[in-house]
Design a protein around this nucleic acid. Structure first.
Lengths: 187, 187
DNA sequence: TCTATCATGTAACCAGTTACATGATTTT
DNA sequence: AAAATCATGTAACTGGTTACATGATAGA
């Protein structure tokens, strides 16, 4: 509980999870991340991937299984989960699922500094955001309706729920500001 | 539009915003961040603060106004916003408020990898999370009710809205899993 | 007056991203 | 067969965090 993770990057969690299904080389890991759209939930870049894989190896969570010289293609090193890695994966997942952790969404920062903007400008910007959010909700819903997978993956439902909450919040805020802005009209 | 920011760390945004009110030395910036509880929305550490201030200076967004040797206390350098800085602040805020940006919440990663956990274990963990979330919502509401500031700062309302959405979502998920788990009971 | 704690800053280290390199296949 | 693109990896750089340093006040 609470001990610092030796490898803390979320991408490492994804790597462990994928290696749970079968041994793989890094590039393949990257491909699957992309193919399954997980890159929308984990920040992914190849450089980071190789770094993370290397640190997982040094930490003993994964081990080099074989080095395939497929002839032609560059040498690829296949990694497999170790017992320690399996344990780390479970522990990490339990932590993430079981307890909420503080996040730092960019919009919260902006809201906390909203005074730095003139009120009318803030209001106008929030209206812009509202439009985009509404459009995004629409897209997600449409995508869900015509989804190849059904029921929709839980993550997607989660994203949608949060997105809708933000949309409602911004809508309310916009209304409030409009009302504040015309106090004379409301006698 | 969309040109890379020379200093991209959110803490830098907070620095610019504070300097809009008046010139200050870094330590004072840190104090205000803490006092106003902004450290819940921007990741803060002194090391990062000094780094960020230095980069803002190199980028020309802030400038050294004076160096006070208050006698006794270590030398403190007071910084002021430049015109470029004021412009950067507005541009950045407009971007953040006006359009939603992709985020990578830790819980989303976990959800996207939920298969890595045995279903009963996942269900149990989600129940734990639900308890904590419910408690947090309660706390926030209570704090809001007895708040020194009224109306509640917008950020807090935002946080509460999102938190409640997550709570509802997890509650729903827990129910679904419970239902799935006892198909025999539902004939 | 010794110890603890506050106020302030610096520097070494570690993590993450970008840009590049190289051989293989496919397209024109 | 030249050009374009894919597959794979490495390395240099930049950003961020931790741990330390030092003088000042306050409490015992």
């Amino acid at each position: 509980m609470g001990r610092r993770r030796e490898v803390a990057n979320p991408l490492a969690l994804a790597v462990l999870a994928w290696l749970l299904t079968e041994p793989m080389h890094p590039y393949e890991l990257g491909r699957r991340l992309m193919r399954t759209g997980q890159d929308r939930h984990v920040k992914y870049s190849r450089g980071t991937l190789y770094m993370v894989v290397d640190r997982l190896r040094r930490a003993g969570f994964i081990a080099e299984r074989e080095t395939v010289r497929d002839t032609r293609r560059p040498e690829r090193t296949v990694y497999a989960l170790t017992d320690a890695g399996r344990e780390e994966l479970r522990d990490w997942m339990r932590d993430l699922v079981g307890t909420p952790h503080p996040e730092y969404p960019r919009f919260a920062v902006a809201l906390s500094l909203l005074d730095a903007l003139a009120p009318e400008e803030a209001a106008a910007l929030l209206r812009d955001r509202l439009l985009t959010l509404t459009a995004q909700v629409g897209e997600l819903r449409a995508a869900a309706a015509s989804a190849p997978a059904w029921p929709l993956p839980v993550v997607e439902e989660y994203r949608l729920a949060v997105l809708e909450a933000e949309r409602r919040f911004v809508a309310g805020l916009v209304d409030t500001l409009a009302a504040d802005d015309l106090p004379a009209d409301r006698t």
